[in-house]
Simulated assay, not measured.
Amino acid sequence: MHNHLLKALSNYITPDLVARAADTLDESETSVFKAMSAAIPTLLIGLLNKTNDIPVIEKIVNLANNEALNTDNILSDLPSLLTDKGDPVTLKNGTSVLQLLFEDKQPKLFETLEKTVSIKKSSIFRLILMSAPMVLAHIKDTNLNTEQLIKSLTSEKDEILKAAPLGLQALLDQQPVIQPEVKTRIKKVKPKHTERVKHRWIIPLLIFVAAILMLVIMS
């Protein structure tokens, strides 16, 4: 039977969870619901973008199958992960998931989500950090291996992209920015080329002047 990731993970967003998360983060329930509804497809699109990077998907599956990861405890007390009092192993695994999927794009990711759902950036971070172990718990509970996870993700590609927050895919598709020192080297090289172009007219002028002098002398 097909394991529908997006639907299954979205089912974890219960009214009770939203209410407790809103109280913990001091946010409105409407904002928290929107943020959590954005967090799930955000994580899935992060996974989807790594389906061609098998080692990353394998690391995610290995994190899910960590013996120290107790899925019953995670799913029964998700709001505890919204504070530093949450289970250290679970929080560490959640942080590892975010690093594997988004690397140095995390700050921009949180900014994008902050604009999309109108909620504090710190709350976005906490909700994403809470949602990452949810994904791991689901992978473990459904016994998904690397191949099966990739198959599920690719089969749901259109749905995941449709559910993803506006601007997210564009952010993840961005190419690395040229480092400042590289830009400096480029700027240093350009004037030399410009200088050579600027003085190319001198040689033809000298030839022209020499020809005029020869005509004067011969006449």
Rank of each mutant, 00 (worst) to 15 (best):
L69N: 14
N70W: 06
N70P: 00
T71N: 04
D72R: 15
D72K: 15
D72W: 06
I74Y: 02
S76N: 15
D77G: 06
L78R: 10
L78T: 09
P79R: 14
P79E: 12
L81F: 08
L81P: 05
L81V: 13
L81T: 13
L82K: 08
L82G: 01
L82H: 06
K85L: 14
G86D: 09
G86C: 10
G86I: 07
G86A: 08
D87R: 11
D87L: 10
D87W: 08
P88V: 05
P88M: 11
P88Y: 04
P88S: 11
P88R: 10
P88L: 09
V89N: 13
V89W: 03
T90N: 12
K92L: 12
K92N: 13
N93K: 14
N93R: 13
N93E: 15
N93I: 10
G94Y: 02
G94V: 08
G94A: 11
G94R: 05
T95G: 10
S96P: 04
V97L: 02
L98Q: 13
Q99C: 02
L100R: 02
L100N: 11
F102G: 10
F102T: 08
F102I: 04
E103W: 01
Q106S: 09
Q106D: 00
P107S: 08
P107I: 03
K108H: 11
L109C: 06
L109T: 04
L109G: 03
L109P: 03
L109D: 04
F110I: 15
F110N: 02
F110G: 02
E111A: 13
T112A: 10
T112H: 04
L113A: 03
L113R: 01
E114F: 00
K115L: 08
K115Q: 11
T116W: 07
V117F: 09
V117G: 03
V117D: 08
V117H: 10
S118V: 15
I119W: 02
I119F: 04
I119E: 00
K120V: 09
K120W: 05
K120D: 13
K121H: 03
K121S: 04
S123H: 06
I124V: 15
I124A: 07
F125A: 12
F125R: 13
R126Q: 14
R126F: 00
R126P: 01
L127R: 04
L127W: 06
I128W: 00
I128K: 01
L129T: 05
L129Y: 03
L129S: 14
M130D: 07
M130N: 09
S131W: 00
S131K: 04
S131Y: 01
A132K: 01
A132G: 05
A132N: 01
P133E: 04
P133Q: 07
M134I: 11
M134H: 04
V135L: 09
V135P: 00
V135H: 02
V135A: 02
V135F: 04
L136M: 05
A137H: 05
A137F: 03
H138N: 02
H138Q: 08
